[in-house]
């Protein structure tokens, strides 16, 4: 067991998979000579050379498409977006080509590709650099999507994503790259589509992923002081979504709060809410609540940005609202 940073865990996964399979390569802006905009790929160019660690011009639509084309004929590209925000200009490649080529070809072709990079807000980077893109992508059949919260999951899910024969989107977080965690020496691939109960509790289920898992953990610690026991389900994988683990938890706690970055209209929280009410209606003692980013473009001002983003106190307030309702 080693205690390593999130970015190191991702790097280890990529290196191990590239050593294992020479069809795997990494491509993106500043991944090579610059050593990665967030140093995730640090040292990889020196290890694998320019053939397999490939710097691109600023052309997300172009290099995302190049990755998809290369995957269609048998390579296994890892395409890094400097941030997922910039994938907006490559959306057509992911939506119309990566996700659909298997179906359009009647199953003749597959697209084993990984798109990865940091997602969600960072700190005061303004409205165009703070998107939570998972809500757009998770709706698309043909794609898989993971958003790990801890280094061990980051490594295991990245390895699974690279080995998967479908397009897999790995959503990381700039604010998690420096977070440390224990990673087993022999950390292998973690199956996609499996959530993890990262804190056991009995009064409420908090469903979260990525950085919001850490916010949920802070909220749970505060709630405990008030005698409320919160269970936290870390989704890890948004598509496929592990509804069995969510439902099992709600059947135990009878209350559910979903926490995520990104806007409240539609999205992952709405999807989780739908499944919980359909699959565990009789277990619920209260409506399902969502704690999300406010329904506005992200403001630059630090105070306003903090207010817009889900914070532990908003999660605590939502949980207390449910507990009071059930008691009342």
């Amino acid at each position: 067991m080693r205690n390593i940073r999130f970015r190191e865990a991702l790097r280890e996964a990529m290196i191990e998979e590239m050593e294992r399979d020479d069809r795997v390569f990494l491509m993106g802006e500043e991944v090579g000579h610059y050593q990665g905009a967030y140093k995730v790929s640090e040292g990889m160019l020196e290890k694998f050379g320019e053939k397999r660690v490939i710097d691109t011009p600023i052309a997300e639509g172009g290099f995302a498409g190049i990755g998809v084309g290369a995957a269609m004929v048998g390579l296994r590209p890892i395409i890094e977006f400097m941030t997922w925000n910039f994938s907006a200009v490559a959306f057509d490649q992911i939506l119309n080509n990566a996700a659909k080529v298997r179906q359009m070809s009647g199953g003749q072709l597959t697209c084993p590709i990984v798109f990865r990079g940091p997602n969600g807000s960072a700190r005061q980077v303004g409205s165009q650099h703070s998107h939570s893109m998972e809500h757009f992508y998770a709706t698309v059949p043909g794609l898989k999507l993971v958003a790990p919260s801890f280094p061990a999951d980051a490594k295991g899910l990245m390895k699974a994503a690279i080995r998967d024969d479908n397009p897999v989107l790995v959503m990381e977080s700039e604010t998690l790259y420096g977070v440390k965690g224990d990673v087993p020496d022999d950390q292998d691939a973690i199956p996609l589509g499996k959530a993890a109960v990262v804190r056991e509790g009995k009064d409420v289920t908090i469903v979260a992923y990525s950085r919001m898992t850490h916010v949920a953990l802070e909220a749970a610690a505060a709630l405990e002081k008030d005698g409320i026991s919160a269970e936290i389900v870390d989704l890890r994988s948004l598509r496929p979504l592990d509804e069995d683990t969510i439902v099992a938890s709600v059947q135990k706690t009878h209350r559910c709060v979903v926490v995520h970055e990104g806007w409240p209209y539609g999205g992952v929280g709405a999807e989780v809410s739908d499944r919980v009410q359909r699959l565990a209606f009789d277990a619920l003692d209260a409506p399902i609540l969502r704690v999300t980013t406010w329904d506005v473009p992200m403001p630059y001002n630090a105070k306003l940005e903090l207010a817009c983003l889900p914070q532990p106190d908003r999660v605590v307030a939502a949980v207390k609202q449910l507990v009071r309702r059930a008691q009342g």
């Binding site: 190049i66 998809v68 290369a70 004929v73 390579l75």
Partner: peptide, 10 residues
């Protein structure tokens, strides 16, 4: 067009 460039890349 980028897709075809990707095939040639491969």
């Amino acid at each position: 067009i980028p897709l075809a460039a990707g095939v040639a890349f491969a």
